[in-house]
């Protein structure tokens, strides 16, 4: 069988979900920790209107950087995010067929749905679901959202988040993220090695604690100001920025465990406000 390149997997999955009626969307143009932060998920699951979307999301987890020393941990990796609202009855089956589409033989591999109820304290969101394990390796987070922005959801969506690097490693038989073949000429390492190394230095050593704390406070204020004015999307942009700054400060090691809870609550309060304002506004349109 022809080797599946990283970009083939991405394209194949996007094609697969486009046939399931998903709008093929793009990553958000701001630093996010997960595809869930993208307004195409955060806002669009709040109301009762049907919504199907699929998009990749390079996700930043500053604390996971290892200066390129660990083949399996990086501070930025690719998610493929799928949202289907309402969740179709046979969604597990559709999902498994998507794995087949990228060349994973269902009958020759051990695939298990293992309980893992996802939650995001910063987004005020939780759901029930699984991590999908392929021969012991977690490749997907599969969640039926119940709450977003602290609000109970009227129509239950399903969120499917593929870890693209994990899947690519499996399909290519390599055991290092850096060795994943992106296409026939470039590896993941060719694209990201320098990026990873530099961001590891930045995250752990170069984030300026006091200045970034000031930024957090400013972004928080700005988010509130804009949201109160009913400028929902611009306001939400600053909620995302707050969350990212908080992640950076945490990686830098300047937030104590007790302060941590407090910061998370501040971001969550903003997320709640954004969700409320979004619903207020969409219901008056």
């Amino acid at each position: 069988m022809k080797k599946k390149h990283f970009q083939d997997i991405l394209l194949t999955l996007q094609y697969f979900w486009s046939k399931e009626g998903c709008l093929i969307y793009s990553p958000y143009n701001s630093e996010v920790g997960a595809g869930t932060f993208n307004p195409a998920t955060f806002f669009k699951v709040l109301d009762e209107k049907p919504w199907r979307v699929c998009y990749p999301e390079p996700s930043k987890r500053p604390r996971d950087g290892r200066y390129c020393q660990n083949p399996l941990r990086v501070q930025q990796y690719w998610q493929l995010q799928v949202i289907l609202k309402p969740a179709p009855q046979n969604i597990q089956e559709i999902y498994l067929k998507s794995l087949e589409a990228i060349g994973i033989n269902l009958k020759n591999n051990d695939i298990k749905f293992i309980e893992d109820d996802w939650e995001s304290p910063t987004l005020g969101a939780w759901g029930v679901g699984w991590q999908v394990e392929l021969n012991g390796i977690e490749i997907t987070q599969f969640t039926y959202f119940q709450q977003m922005g602290g609000l109970d959801l009227k129509v239950i969506p399903v969120e499917i988040t593929y870890g693209l690097e994990r899947i690519a490693m499996f399909l290519q038989g390599v055991f290092s993220i850096f060795q994943i073949e992106w296409n026939k000429d470039f590896t993941w390492g060719d694209v990201y090695f320098q990026n990873e190394e530099e961001f590891s230095f930045f995250n752990f050593q170069e984030v300026l604690p006091e200045e970034y704390l000031k930024l957090f406070n400013f972004y928080e204020k700005e988010a509130k100001r804009l949201l109160e004015k009913g400028l929902v999307y611009p306001g939400y942009d600053y909620v995302i920025k707050c969350s990212h700054i908080f992640n950076l400060l945490e990686a830098r090691g300047v937030i104590s465990v007790s302060e941590r809870v407090n910061y998370i609550k501040r971001v969550r309060d903003l997320a709640k406000l954004a969700a409320l304002k979004y619903l207020e506004k969409t219901s008056t349109f």
């Binding site: 033989n105 020759n108 591999n109 695939i111 021969n135 012991g136 390796i137």
Partner: peptide
């Protein structure tokens, strides 16, 4: 490890699964 495979008899495939569990470990 326990695998959820009632019909899989192909040794090569089983060996592949084993390899991946070992890598995960």
């Amino acid at each position: 490890v326990v695998i959820n495979k009632p019909f899989l008899k192909d040794k090569k495939a089983i060996n592949e699964i084993k390899n991946w569990y070992e890598k995960a470990c």
